[in-house]
Structure formats: structure tokens, C-alpha cells
Amino acid sequence: MRDSIGGIPASRLLFLSLLGNLFLIAFMAVQFLEIGRPPAPPMPPPPPAMMVERLATSVSDEGRAIIMAIYEQRQQVLDTLFGEMGHAQLQTQQVFAGENFDEAGYKAAILHRKEVADRFFSEMADMFLEIGQQLSPEDRREALKRGRF
């Protein structure tokens, strides 16, 4: 056996090969363990106040004043719809986990949850439309860096 390959000592190459193999074994073990795990449930949207605050911190002072004024006009409706959306999700989960599966009840709960979510996201879209109409082009570009519209 040669003492070196390309000027690198054989013992060092053997050690690096061993490390590479250990890395591959660890990677394969993690992949194997992940196969049986169910996918994570989708994350609910953040509360409206958090979304608006994130947006407001990315724009000028004038833009922030516009955003907060528009949000304050819609805050009560948005907070109510957001709470209804969470309640509808909880109802859907409770129907699904019931002692006897109620197919009609589950379908009704899903439709109700979808209706509430549609109203919430429609209200958010209307608010962002109003905000977009009043922000400067520079503020709109900065806002895009912090959110999805």
C-alpha cells in the first residue's frame, strides 16, 4: 500500500473517507426517520395586527401613518373575522374527532371555515388595495420586501 496519494498521506485520506461515510449514514438515518412522520399541518396566518405592523415597519414615516390609519378603520372587522376563523377551525377539528364521524357535519364545518376565511382574506385584500393606492411608489417597493400582496 502506498503511503500517500497525490501528496496527501493515506491515513488522512482514510480519516476523511470515514468522516464522509459517517455523514452519509447520519443523513440516511434522518431521512429514514422522517418517512413515517406525517406532514406538519399548514400554519394559520398571523394575526392582522402582526401583518400590518410588519408592513408598517418597512416603509417611511408617512407610509406608516397611512397604513396605521387604514388599519385602525378596519381593525375591529379584521379582528372579529380572524377570531371567527380560529373558532371555525376548532369546530372543524372537533367534528372530525367526534365519537361517531358525522360526514354531513364535517362537510358543513369545512364549508363554514372556508366561508369565514374567504371573508377574512377578502377584507385583508381590500385593506391592502386601499393602502397600495395611497402609498408612494418607493413605499410600495419597500413593502414588497416584507410581505406578499
Rank of each mutant, 00 (worst) to 15 (best):
F120S: 04
S136R: 10
E53R: 12
S58L: 04
L111Q: 09
A40V: 03
V59P: 04
T57F: 09
E103D: 14
S4L: 10
D79V: 09
Q75E: 15
A109C: 11
L19M: 12
I67M: 06
M28F: 15
P48K: 08
A10N: 05
I25Q: 02
M1H: 13
E115W: 09
A10T: 12
P47S: 06
L14P: 00
I8P: 02
Y106I: 02
D139P: 03
N100E: 14
Q91G: 00
G105T: 06
R119E: 12
E72P: 02
A65E: 11
D118M: 07
G63L: 09
G86I: 09
V52I: 15
A117M: 12
M50D: 11
E62L: 09
H112W: 04
A97F: 12
M124R: 05
F96E: 06
A65Q: 09
E84C: 04
P39H: 02
I8L: 09
R113S: 15
L90V: 13
D61Y: 08
L13I: 10
A109M: 09
M51V: 03
E72S: 08
A125K: 10
K107L: 14
R37D: 01
L16Q: 07
A104N: 05
S4V: 02
L14K: 08
M51T: 02
A56P: 10
K107W: 01
A143R: 03
L90R: 15
M28R: 00
R54G: 03
P44A: 06
E34M: 05
M127S: 04
L90F: 15
E138K: 08
F23C: 04
M50T: 09
A108S: 13
A10H: 08
F27I: 01
A88G: 07
F23Y: 12
S11R: 07
Q94R: 15
E123P: 02
S58D: 06
E53A: 12
I35A: 00
R37Q: 07
E138P: 01
R146L: 08
M85N: 14
Y71E: 00
K114T: 13
A125I: 04
F23H: 02
L55P: 01
A56L: 07
G83C: 03
I5L: 15
Q94A: 14
G36D: 01
T80M: 14
A69M: 06
T57H: 15
P137R: 07
A117L: 09
L16W: 10
Q91S: 06
E123I: 01
E142T: 04
R2V: 06
A88R: 14
M85T: 08
A143M: 04
H112S: 11
L14D: 07
L55N: 01
R74I: 02
K114M: 08
D118H: 11
D118S: 11
D126Q: 10
M124N: 02
A29M: 11
G6D: 13
A40M: 03
E103G: 12
Y106A: 06
E142Q: 15
F121G: 00
L33D: 00
P42V: 03
M51Q: 14
R148N: 10
L55C: 04
A65R: 14
L16G: 00
L13E: 03
L19T: 00
P38F: 04
E130L: 14
R119P: 05
F27H: 00
P48C: 07
S122G: 15
L144Y: 07
R74D: 13
L135R: 07
F82L: 02
A26L: 04
